[in-house]
Write a protein that binds this DNA or RNA. Structure first.
Lengths: 204, 204, 204, 204
DNA sequence: GATGAATGAGTTTTCATTCAT
DNA sequence: TATGAATGAAAACTCATTCAT
């Protein structure tokens, strides 16, 4: 389960320039704390240790920086969520769902800034700037699994998007609770498992 | 069930000045569309049909306007949610919960701008400006009902805050789905009822 | 020597309305602390316990309030300075000068806000708004005494305005020193007497 | 004696940026005429030939601009006053004092805007923003000379700060008179010399 | 006379973005 | 590529003044 502890910085870049990464990281940290409107680009550049103009060398607009960051994090989250599911091809729908669910929640807990940013973004007018195809790409694995579950007769025969929305907001709520309740790791893990059972009970 | 259709504007004022109301209404409409950072105070004043300075006569700060609006809407939502529950004292926990759940969802659907604003606010750094006691006041009825349900043995013996968070995010998700799916009223009502049953199944 | 302790409020009005006085008093106190640009008319009205608009009932402009206050205080100061001089008609020039000098200094120490305001005003562009005849009226007694001294051969045969300016700035400096040095009354009085002797030595 | 005629602009900058200087110069000219509250930053920027934002690139606040200008001018004045005094190490206390006195007065006459600004500033609430150590640094040379004079038995044994205050206000008064009397240079120079003798007579 | 809500021009300040180096 | 000084449009907020009551 060590993939949970992969450091954020290591995950976000790899291919691009060093500076681009530093900018994204700095932006994320500041956005999480002050919101994107409360964070001037100058502060981001400063925190990233680059010049003011350099930021605009990599992102032609503040808006582009924000949406880039969103797509990056959302992609990362959905990949992370689907990670082990892919590996355990032999597993049943329930087990695969449990993995996906727990992975997503773990990612959120490991990347509080990232998850917070995603929430902020989702509830902002910026969301409209994301191409629908991009959105689809990211929900596809989840919707696939749900469809599989419905077809196999495990999950209630309701629109997959509906189920997906319920699952997403359930994860959102769990994260919210964990952030505020500050449980011990063991308690947290136990409650996480139990919450999946509750969720599954609701959906089947 | 006609109280669901009370118009927002009628609900928000009554006691205060005319202009103060107009400002709040205008702010709500613009915030919902452009976000609060995307909405200059000058635009709000203009939309409200008052002078620029008048806005600051009623709200000494843009921030104060935003938080005032939030508290107003949140209070309205929680009162609306609890409305019939109070009346039906004889009802069982499940029925009272159903009422509270459906009421909240109805309010969200009747006041899409208001609900959208609440979401934006909740996910913004502004939330920290709200006194914790104010937050408690608003979640109290819901927590009371949950505690009652746990005591009576209906709801799982988990922390009431935990249950509350799950219920809230469930409502949040439902609203999200309805906003995007554009169902017929009848379908919507049916799915709403069914979703409560699912929720109840999960919690018991 | 009890005239030194005449209360300011008693001195400033007498004939006009109660409210006009309260406004002037409040203005003086606030101007002394925050400067006239740092003091909004609304604050003055508030401190005076009258409505915002009432201020403009008595003074059609903030500027008029400021200049009225200046003329009032300056008149008071010069009258106070000349007070005993008038009474002691038999005294010699030196003694009359000493009285005038000490009186002025006492007034400054009894009315620190007033003196501070006069200084601020004198060094501001507002000074240009005062009619030259008004200025002359106030310096007349002092200039008369100086001319008398020059004619009598006591004071150096230099332009009276020149002497007057030196005396004024001497008083200004003495006040400045007393304000900052916080001497005991007895020491203060002694130094005051000594400073007159120094001044007289310089001028003769 | 040609150093008296060094132009202000030449003195103020040298090391700093071009624009920073232009802003300070423009500010000085406008402040002298309209007072600092009567001078919007936009006008300063305009007069300096820079963009509005550029002013805030160099001075984060209007207040900072004002205090920077004050410290700059006050430093310049005290350096200028002490200039030749330092050179004439062999001279007696009286001659050194005469130089310092005349230098200060010459500076005031050469830099009427600067002196006027210093007066305005000194009589404004802004003065409190200046660190006491900064104030001390500037009065140190003068106090030193006075102390020397007292020790040597020339100047009356009174507190040096007291003497300093009297000298300062004497200079202030002289300047005031010269500004208003518009004498011929020769007359002015003669009166200046005479006024020093009068001052010295007073202090010894 | 007295009020105080309402006004809107004007002020300081911020900040995304550009561009010469 | 990278820089950071410079820009100027736009934002929040202030405040002297008016006027209907």
């Amino acid at each position: 389960m060590e993939q949970y502890f992969v450091y954020f910085c290591g995950v976000i870049s790899q291919s691009d320039t060093d500076k681009r990464d530093k900018i994204l990281q700095a932006a994320l940290k500041l956005f999480a704390e002050f919101g994107f409107h409360g964070t001037p680009t100058s502060k981001i550049a400063q925190a990233a240790g680059v010049a003011n103009g350099t930021l605009f060398h990599y992102f032609s607009t503040k808006e582009e920086l924000i949406t880039s960051l969103y797509i990056h994090l959302k992609t990362q989250l959905s990949q992370f969520s689907a990670a082990d599911v892919v590996l355990e091809q032999g597993a049943g729908v329930k087990e695969k769902s449990r993995w996906a669910y727990l992975n997503a929640l773990h990612w959120a807990l490991q990347n509080p800034d990232g998850f917070r940013f995603i929430q902020q973004f989702t509830n902002s007018p910026f969301l409209l700037l994301i191409a629908p195809e991009e959105v689809k790409k990211q929900t596809a694995p989840s919707l696939g699994l749900i469809t599989e579950g419905i077809t196999a007769g495990f999950i209630k025969p309701l629109p997959p998007e509906f189920i997906h929305t319920l699952v997403s907001s359930h994860i959102y709520g769990m994260n919210e609770f964990f952030l505020q309740a500050k449980l011990l790791p063991a308690q947290q893990e136990k409650l996480m498992q139990e919450s999946f059972d509750m969720l599954w009970k609701m959906l089947t």
